[in-house]
């Protein structure tokens, strides 16, 4: 995966917090997707960036995280979001 590829979060995807759970709701298909604590943190950063590279740079600066592990987690997370229709990447 090219970390410099811009991504887009569809406007139909809505974040909600209910009790202590964070969930994404895609109003385009009515499906829900629960985020764990790490996922919620990654999603929050992704809403303020446009590339995975930018997310990594920001998180490495702010949090005490190992870059390699963060990259792997973020790529896996992004791929899941794409599968669920919650994220899309522009072609390089």
């Amino acid at each position: 995966m090219n970390l410099m590829n811009p991504y887009t979060i569809p406007s139909t995807v809505l974040l909600q917090c209910v009790d202590e759970e964070t969930l994404l709701f895609n109003s385009a298909n009515g499906l829900f997707f629960a985020l764990n604590e790490t996922g919620a943190m990654l999603w929050e950063e992704m809403t303020h960036a446009t590339t995975l590279h930018a997310v990594i740079e920001k998180m490495v600066e702010v949090y005490d995280v190992e870059r390699k592990q963060l990259e792997a987690d973020l790529i896996a997370f992004s791929q899941t979001l794409v599968t669920q229709g919650l994220l899309s990447f522009e072609q390089a």
Partner: peptide
């Protein structure tokens, strides 16, 4: 609790017009 509670409420939504979906979801 959590996602189960929200999804069950959403199943019972009524008059959920598409132009108000973000507000309705936030309300739920």
């Amino acid at each position: 609790k959590g996602i189960e509670k929200f999804s069950r409420l959403h199943e019972g939504g009524e008059m959920n017009f598409s132009f108000f979906t973000p507000q309705y979801v936030s309300y739920l």
